[in-house]
Simulated assay, not measured.
Amino acid sequence: MARNNQLVVPGAKAALSKMKVEIAQEYGIAFTPDGYNGNLITRDAGTIGGNITRRLVQMAEQSLGGRM
Rank of each mutant, 00 (worst) to 15 (best):
A2W: 07
A2E: 10
R3T: 13
R3A: 13
N4D: 14
N4S: 13
N4R: 11
N5F: 14
Q6R: 10
L7T: 09
L7G: 09
V9G: 06
G11D: 08
A15G: 06
S17G: 11
S17L: 07
M19C: 06
K20Y: 02
V21I: 03
E22W: 01
E22T: 06
I23H: 01
Q25T: 14
E26R: 15
Y27S: 12
Y27H: 15
G28P: 03
G28F: 08
I29W: 01
T32I: 10
T32F: 10
T32K: 08
P33I: 01
P33F: 00
D34S: 11
D34A: 10
D34P: 01
D34V: 05
G35Y: 02
G35L: 00
N37Y: 02
N37C: 02
N37G: 00
G38Q: 01
G38C: 03
N39S: 15
L40K: 03
I41R: 06
T42W: 09
T42V: 08
R43H: 09
D44M: 09
D44C: 06
D44H: 13
D44A: 11
A45I: 05
A45P: 01
A45H: 04
A45S: 09
A45V: 07
G46M: 15
T47R: 12
G49W: 07
N51M: 08
N51H: 12
T53S: 12
R54P: 03
R54L: 15
L56W: 02
V57A: 11
Q58D: 15
M59G: 07
E61Q: 14
Q62A: 14
Q62W: 06
Q62G: 10
S63G: 04
G66D: 14
M68H: 12
M68F: 12
